[in-house]
Design a protein around this nucleic acid. Structure first.
Lengths: 195, 195
DNA sequence: TGTACATCAGTGAACGCGCGTTCACTGATGTAC
DNA sequence: TGTACATCAGTGAACGCGCGTTCACTGATGTAC
């Protein structure tokens, strides 16, 4: 039954990535350790060979999900210099595709649950948010770095809020309007601050 | 043991109001029926004399919380005509007091959980959001009613997103900056659209 | 108006179930000589 | 290089516990005459 060290490391990574998806899909509290392990093709008993607790998995999978999100936003900005890159990132983030995709922004998937998580999980969320802020700020040209970071905070707040509400409302038109109006408003903000 | 009809109706109302607070404090999934009943000074067995299921209580308490929020925002706008009222509502909503108060906006307290709730709960959330949108739009003078509603969607998205993230980050300065920058940005938005 | 009975708000214990975590076990991997 | 043994990744069952819901019961309230 014992697997090689390399296989074990791969298994561990698979659990983290599976958890990053499952927690976003079903929420942190509602998704059990057994759910994650089953989704990773394992039985629950083996979980504690890799992690100290569910909390430790939440922390690691959150870091993983936030890295994915940052990479995704950097992908949207790639080859689009300065503020054009930010416009593209906003466009992609606030798309209907992103809304309907469960493997998306962890702040949207379980943002209100994070406020009730452990200190270490909230620290991880804070670090991940800072990475996002920096990624956006790098493309917010024409203002000081400090101003670019402040502008990033507003952009992220609006994107996360609009997407959170667009996900929960049961009216499709209202949901689409939330994304459209947030997009339009952020476009104006990003363009206005460039001059 | 039996209580009069009037007393029973008061008990029911007390359960709804207690639940509206407890669900915001602890989240929907993590707060049990027994928790709510105990907080209301009752034992869990009596719950089903008043409600068909936990889902029915979630729905009613959500409506109650959203009514409170709308009343609170209308209170901020009272005696401040037009856009000045909206500025006051934004100021109050994005305050540190509001962030540190668990009995606040349900979209912040359990917004990401709502996306996974039943259709009827999401319908209630949608109706409540529309009431909020209308309350704000009434004070957004100088533009058409349709434009005022669209502007309200952006204001609410930014307020909800900023507050959600401000609640979850463990860095106090970052949390304060999120509220401050969102406030500043929305003030500019509300003032710009008035002309 | 008074009385006999039905109703039902609320209690407290129990139901089946799933949770996070623990543990005995298996057998392939890793290590010591 | 080969062998004997220790290690440990993963399994499957069990632990105590809390969940949403049900139910028998109590006794004050409501109703019918």
């Amino acid at each position: 039954m014992r697997k090689s060290r390399e296989e074990a490391a791969q298994t561990r990574q698979r659990i983290v990535e599976t958890a990053a998806l499952e927690f976003r899909r079903g929420g942190i509290v509602s998704t059990g350790v057994a759910d994650v392990m089953a989704a990773a093709g394992l039985t629950q008993g083996g979980f504690y060979r890799h992690f100290e607790s569910k909390d430790a998995l939440v922390k690691e999978s959150l870091a993983n999900a936030l890295d994915s999100l940052t990479a995704s936003i950097e992908g949207s900005m790639a080859n689009r210099p300065g503020r054009a890159g930010v416009l593209a990132a906003i466009e992609d983030y606030l798309s209907a595709d992103h809304r309907d995709n469960p493997s998306s922004c962890p702040f949207v998937s379980f943002g209100s649950e994070l406020a009730r998580e452990s200190q270490s999980v909230r620290d991880e969320a804070t670090n991940g948010l800072s990475r996002l802020v920096n990624a956006l700020a790098r493309n917010l040209t024409g203002v000081s770095p400090a101003s670019a970071k402040k502008e990033s905070l507003v952009i992220l707040s609006t994107m996360i809020g609009a997407m959170t509400v667009a996900r929960l409302v049961s009216d499709k038109e209202l949901s689409a309007a939330l994304l459209t109006q947030a997009k339009k408003s952020l476009f104006e903000l990003v363009r206005a601050n460039s001059s």
